[in-house]
Design a binder for these strands. Sequence first.
DNA 1: GATTTTCTTGACCGGACGGTCATCTACAGA
DNA 2: TCTGTAGATGACCGTCCGGTCAAGAAAATC
Lengths: 200, 200
Amino acid sequence: MNAATDTRSRIIAAAKPRFHSRSYANVGIQEICESAGVQKGSFYHFFPSKRDLVMAVIDEFADEWANGFVAEAFDPALPPMERIDYLVDAAYFWQKSIKQVHGRMLGCIFGNLTLEVSTQDDILRAKLLAIFSRAKSRFKDTLEEAVAAGTLAPLDSDLTAEAMLAYLEGVILLAKSQNDPELIYRLGPAIKTLRVETAA
Amino acid sequence: MNAATDTRSRIIAAAKPRFHSRSYANVGIQEICESAGVQKGSFYHFFPSKRDLVMAVIDEFADEWANGFVAEAFDPALPPMERIDYLVDAAYFWQKSIKQVHGRMLGCIFGNLTLEVSTQDDILRAKLLAIFSRAKSRFKDTLEEAVAAGTLAPLDSDLTAEAMLAYLEGVILLAKSQNDPELIYRLGPAIKTLRVETAA
DNA sequence: GATTTTCTTGACCGGACGGTCATCTACAGA
DNA sequence: TCTGTAGATGACCGTCCGGTCAAGAAAATC
């Protein structure tokens, strides 16, 4: 790892927990630079703007999830509907461990950023939309596999997948308002009761 | 209406759409004062801090809803489960009309603020929590009435109510990420499929 | 009419914001 | 050895931030 990529990744590493635990507007570039041991001019050598930084942070979170819990949850070896349980459990354990370390439930950074910036920055909104879109596809594929396997009565897999994603985000939102990840544990399993029937 | 309450309410009136359409951090007191035609010193005569202002704004939104759509939706004359449909419809039409006027879907201000500030301000978090708690009670009472009437198979009304509220918030979040209220229309009705069974 | 309280005015505070820039250093390739 | 480039430095830009304050105007109370 040369000096250049090291500086860049130190910036991202400093920014990640801050954007996650506070908000986009509330985290300043100066603070990130100080924490990363980087001068401001150097920051702007790697990131044209604050928005570009948060995009890189979004990518990092997305990769982390895709290669971690999501890869585990959507393991083809698992029965389809169990994968959904697995993912909800992963969200629960993750939020729980964050709270143990940090003292607070931080929620989903994609949801957090969506509600904060999506009326003000269409480029960020598009970025976040793409993340949700990929998540939805995972759910959809899983639902279709379950239907094909006969584990699940036929339904509108596209809309049901979207409903499940919405539900997961909503549960995390409510849990954050209570600062209590246990809500995810209690409400999570009901995700499988959601159904949108196929249009007649 | 004397001058005092008029100034106060003009401040709130100027703040409401701004906090709703942007974010807490992104709206400054100076801007609100200019829009309301009020001097800064006068602002701080009525509101000890920015936080107090946003609390008043939250109260106004809550009252507006409680006396408007919510009162209509939870009309005892309606069959219980239809009340839930009514509320989801109201959310849809509201967001749709906002988009027509404003060009954007603004979402639920309670959800927006929750994700933005609840890790940074426990007093605001408590305020928002109380709003959600009241909303949950409405759902819960309705579910219990439906069960009593035999329209709905017995379930855990407390957790199901919370699940429904979470789902509604999640759907609005996803719709906001797409800047498309139609998603509420498509996903909303599935709220009634949510069930948390009573613990054995 | 005198006094007290409520409200308004507008200048002012220190500090943080995102972002720029000229200058310097280090290193790579020719 | 020379040159071009990537990276680092730190001062600097104008602007906005939430909040304060002393003074004055207006209105209510007696």
